[in-house]
Amino acid sequence: MRQGFENLFRESAAPGAHRTLALVNMRANAYALGAIALWASLAALAVSLGHVPPLFLTGAALVLGSVPSWPLVLRDPAQWRIPLRTLALGVYGLFAYHFLLFLALRHAPAVQANLINYLWPLLIVLLAPLLLPGMRLRWTHVLAGLLGFSGAALAITGGHTPDAALAWGYLPALAAAFIWASYSLLTRRVPAFPTTAIGLFGLVSGLLALLCHALLEPAAQLQARDWALLALLGLGPLGGAFFLWDKALKLGDARHIGILSYLTPVASTALLMLVRGQSPSASLVLATALILGAAILGMRA
């Protein structure tokens, strides 16, 4: 009889556990989509600030992006008391990623370099079983990852073939993709840290970028409009997006979130076209269908 009651309890509890898990995944996906929405504005803002030296742009935006966490840290300084290796991981993710990405954009055509950079969602899906315990990669995840990358490639290139003659310039972009994917996954391997600590990652990374700017680039000359756009860049794609991304990774399945990330190049391209007054192309519509199909397939897996 006792075993019968235990079985009955397990059967009645299982639906509730599934509902709780579903709600957690919905919250994680909402945070991830919020980060993706902010990252979608990166290209449009970068075009408007194309005359600003890239290292200064990165450094100033990351420092500004850390500002929302300052009041929380003033109330509770322990929010930024994290192990040194956790801070090193944060700097690895934010500073090294942007440094290599801007290096790639200087030495290879921007569209093609950006395409290589958008390998990071696929790498999140494929590297999750290698870097996270308890993760298992299924053939549906691989199929969804490849389908999503096909959509991302189509969205960025418009169906054109990248210039193989400049392949050497793509290496920093490939390294950047690996860094962001591995950073995103390895935040689950270090001791638990509050999301507020992302502000410390951004502050230290931004100061390093500004130091590199002082050593490697001419002094930046900004107008009032530039500072306003820089504030939007810092509080959005190079600031708030990191906090939302960290919350998503803490709550959700990294494989599903990686597949959802394929929406970023589509949203970014669409917003850039809107800012420029261009109409969506057939390739962008097809890319959207591929990426949404990949996201649905990945989540069903």
Rank of each mutant, 00 (worst) to 15 (best):
A37P: 05
P172D: 09
S41K: 07
L105V: 01
H213P: 06
G159T: 13
L38F: 13
P162A: 15
A144C: 10
V63W: 00
L211P: 08
A197C: 04
P194S: 10
A153L: 14
Y170F: 15
S66A: 13
L260I: 12
M273P: 05
I116Y: 06
A301F: 08
L132D: 03
N29R: 11
I198P: 01
W80S: 00
L171K: 07
L126G: 01
R136N: 11
M299Q: 14
V125W: 03
A192V: 05
P83D: 03
L238M: 14
G169D: 07
L49A: 08
L290T: 04
Q3H: 14
I179V: 15
P280C: 11
G277T: 09
A104W: 01
Y183A: 02
A32V: 07
F102W: 07
V24Q: 14
A209S: 13
L238P: 01
T195K: 01
G145I: 00
A13W: 15
M299S: 10
I116D: 01
R136H: 14
C212D: 09
T86E: 05
N114Y: 05
G4L: 15
L263T: 01
A110R: 08
A155S: 14
N114H: 06
A270H: 07
H256W: 14
L200K: 03
L215Y: 09
P68M: 13
W70A: 13
A128K: 03
L244A: 07
